[in-house]
């Protein structure tokens, strides 16, 4: 059943002392067929977890890259039904990679939070990340996610005070998403200096895996950050490659290969 696919995967990776690599894709960018193809290719290349971003009209935690892919996907008319349909199709075909549903709250709220949790889990999603939903709000959704076996992952950031970070870590299922910077998503040249210290504190407070995301783009950064944590999450840098190659998937897949190699070596 669903979230166990994620939790088992993370458990096995830890046993093998392997770092975790999580890749983000925008559903429907460059198109739905490409999203399906990319998920399968990423699975083959050794990506451990897929974070599938549902496009939203007002993605206020995202930088220009993911704003762009979201706008394009929405212009193609992507809906929640497409997200459920894709997950179902992948599972039917035997694809076992854990897939997290990433979405701003409003599309979930409009669908109905309980109905969403039920449908997402039944379709084959393993977890959910909602960047504009702090753990204080819509606590009913947490119960619904547990009930249907959907792992809810919350974010911890450099501005999160330690007692709060500890409480958030307790609420996370699967892993903890550590945001490496103050700002929105998007590739950055430099990693902020206080990441090492924050991660050291956070890892003392929890035995759940901590994955680092936001701003990760080069294999060197990925290797450095996964050395300080249990793994990395990469998003905008993938979308950038899809955009530069006018939607061809080859360069993005080659990039993922180099990233996985950097993190796993």
């Amino acid at each position: 059943m669903t979230e166990s696919r994620l939790i088992d995967k993370l458990g096995n990776l830890r046993k093998q002392k392997s770092k975790v690599f999580c890749a983000f894709l925008t559903l429907g960018y460059p198109n739905l067929g490409a999203t399906e193809k990319l998920i399968k290719a990423f699975d083959r290349e050794g990506v451990d977890i897929i974070e599938l971003g549902f496009p939203f009209s007002d993605p206020l935690a995202d930088g220009p890259t993911i704003q762009y892919s979201s706008e394009k996907a929405l212009a193609r008319g992507v809906t929640l039904r497409d997200a459920f349909g894709l997950a179902k199709k992948l599972r039917r075909q035997g694809c076992r990679i854990p897939i997290l549903f990433f979405s701003y709250l409003n599309p979930i709220y409009r669908y109905g939070i309980r109905a969403f949790a039920k449908k997402a889990a039944a379709s084959g999603f393993d977890g959910v990340i909602v960047p504009d939903l702090p753990p204080e709000e819509e606590t009913g959704f947490q119960h619904d996610c547990r009930r249907y076996g959907l792992a809810q992952v919350f974010l911890v950031t450099p501005t999160t005070a330690q007692p709060r970070a500890r409480a958030i870590a307790r609420k996370c299922r699967g892993f903890i998403y550590y945001v490496s910077l103050r700002g929105v998503t998007g590739a950055r040249r430099n990693i902020s200096a206080d990441v090492r210290r924050h991660l050291a504190v956070l890892e003392k407070d929890t035995d759940k895996p901590v994955l680092v995301g936001f701003g990760v783009s080069s294999p060197k950064q990925a290797k450095f950050l996964s050395g300080l944590s249990e793994g990395v999450i990469v998003g905008s840098a993938i979308i950038d490659r899809l955009r530069k190659s006018s939607g061809k998937t080859g360069p993005a897949i080659a990039y993922i290969r180099s990233m996985v190699r950097a993190v796993k070596s």
Binding site: D132, F154, L155
Partner: peptide, 20 residues
């Protein structure tokens, strides 16, 4: 205390802003 007027209001923001 949580910023609600009946069912409306609250704080639906990225975690980075919670401290501010």
């Amino acid at each position: 205390k949580r910023g609600y007027f009946g069912d409306f209001g609250g704080r639906y923001v990225p975690e980075t802003l919670m401290r501010a």
